[in-house]
Simulated scan of single mutants.
Amino acid sequence: MFFSFSSKSDENNIKFYSEDNGILSIMYHRFNEHKYPSTNINMEVFKKHLEIVKNSKYNFLNPNEFDSKFKTSKSEKEVLITIDDAFESFYNEAWPYLRDNKIPFILFVSTEPVGNKGYMTWDQIREIDAVDFSLIGHHSHSHEYLIEETEENFILDIETANKIFKQELNYIPSLFSYPFGEYSKFMRDYISQNFEYAFGQHSGVIDLNKNKFELPRFPINEKYGELKRFKSIINYYPLEYKSLSPSEKQLTINDNPPNFKVEFFKEQKNLSNITCYSNEGDQWDKSKTNLSNQILTIEFREPFKPRRGRINCSLNDNGKWRWFGVQFPIKKN
């Protein structure tokens, strides 16, 4: 069966240099589940993260205001807390602290595991949904590697979750989070027709020129939640751009490495200070970049290896550090 969708993913883009100070989104999963270090954060470290945000004089963004805040240039950066997967440890460990301190967040829920061992129940999810500083997001039904499914099965997974959300919460969440941060152009275009915004797992800071259905987040875990690194992340600002290609983020043998190009705005300064790192060949190294007429290209050393290729670019803009990242799921041969 063939499905075709016209994408709404570029309809929001203002396409002028906005000097937006942005929304910095941070992603967590488990709390005090130390046997899962790649998705876990120590609760005491999590509390210190929140204190760092407060001491940096940044406000936490209430996700119920995300739409209006996204569409305007922010004079002050705000921080958005997101939690993926609705693990029971979030409810037992982090939720009481967030509740008592009224710190806003999004909880992205995959519907299939709800109520299973190690996961929250629908009663617990409804408890969180009832407060005015939280928002429930859509994280698919199965949380499988949906990029490997057929287009029909991908749509079935989303529609199955929709029915369950409607049954349990009486509505379908309008914000989506791609499982594992992976998506193809088909997936993104489908999501753009059925949701208001969608988040990946590539690093960067949200500004009003970013694609509404490819929003970046900084993933945090035991390794990448170290306090010195977190303090650096919190002080990043958007590195705005006019366009980024390729539009298709899933790479095949025929387009790996990709023809990577980023077009910046003519008003942007200090672009010669951009430094990029990429992990082609499964080896992180400084990228060979070229900047000409506000367009950045990268000459890759070799193809990216499965499962994911990544590029991270930063810019010292007169002492203000700007950042964006890209993730490429690699299709197996």
Rank of each mutant, 00 (worst) to 15 (best):
P96H: 06
P96W: 05
Y97K: 14
Y97G: 10
L98E: 10
R99Y: 15
D100Q: 14
D100I: 04
N101V: 03
K102V: 02
I106Q: 08
L107C: 05
F108E: 01
V109Y: 00
V109E: 02
S110H: 00
T111I: 02
T111S: 13
E112F: 08
E112G: 00
E112T: 01
E112C: 01
E112L: 12
E112V: 00
V114K: 00
G115C: 09
G115I: 05
N116E: 14
K117Y: 10
K117N: 13
Y119A: 06
Y119E: 03
Y119K: 12
Y119V: 07
T121Q: 09
D123K: 14
D123S: 15
D123I: 04
Q124D: 11
Q124G: 10
I125M: 11
I125Q: 05
E127I: 03
D129N: 15
A130M: 05
V131F: 09
V131G: 04
L135Q: 11
I136T: 03
G137N: 02
H138R: 01
H139F: 12
S140I: 00
H141N: 15
H143S: 06
E144H: 07
E144C: 04
L146I: 13
E148R: 13
E148S: 14
E149Y: 15
T150F: 11
T150N: 14
E151A: 14
E152K: 14
I155F: 07
L156H: 09
L156W: 05
L156N: 14
I158A: 08
I158N: 12
E159W: 03
E159K: 15
T160H: 04
T160P: 03
T160R: 14
A161N: 03
A161M: 04
N162E: 15
K163Y: 02
I164C: 03
F165Y: 12
F165V: 08
K166I: 02
